[in-house]
Computed example of a mutant assay.
Amino acid sequence: MGVGPAGLAMRIGRPINWDDRVSSNVCHGHECPLMIVEQLRCAVAHPILLERGINAVLLVARRTSLRYADSELAVSGEAVKALVPLFLK
């Protein structure tokens, strides 16, 4: 079921705040082709939960190793809530 931050978010069903500075991460971005090709150094992956389970993931990432702050996680979480109705149409 996928690799990298998005794959882990889909498997466990909760947001992942990942960066490449922490070597003990259970989620290895260097295994994810998208993270490699786009040279992404940190990411937040939010699973999009619908009635039938997780159908998608919102991946927000940057090319710097500046980890996302809690306030940024809240904003991306609100974006997920706004996207859910689009999947129900």
Rank of each mutant, 00 (worst) to 15 (best):
M1G: 12
V3N: 11
P5K: 01
M10E: 10
G13I: 05
G13S: 09
I16F: 06
I16V: 15
I16G: 02
N17G: 02
D19Q: 08
R21E: 13
V22I: 15
V22D: 15
S23R: 12
S24Q: 14
N25V: 10
V26M: 13
V26W: 12
V26R: 15
H28R: 15
H28M: 14
E31Y: 12
M35C: 10
I36T: 14
I36E: 11
Q39D: 15
L40V: 08
R41Y: 09
A45Y: 05
A45Q: 00
A45M: 04
H46S: 02
I48F: 01
L49M: 12
L50I: 12
L50Y: 04
L50T: 15
E51R: 13
E51Y: 08
R52E: 13
G53P: 09
I54T: 10
N55R: 10
N55I: 00
N55K: 06
L59N: 02
V60P: 00
A61T: 03
A61P: 04
R63I: 04
R63H: 00
D70Y: 06
S71Y: 11
L73I: 02
A74H: 06
V75A: 09
S76I: 07
S76D: 05
A79L: 14
V80Y: 05
L83G: 00
P85Q: 04
P85K: 05
L86A: 10
F87L: 06
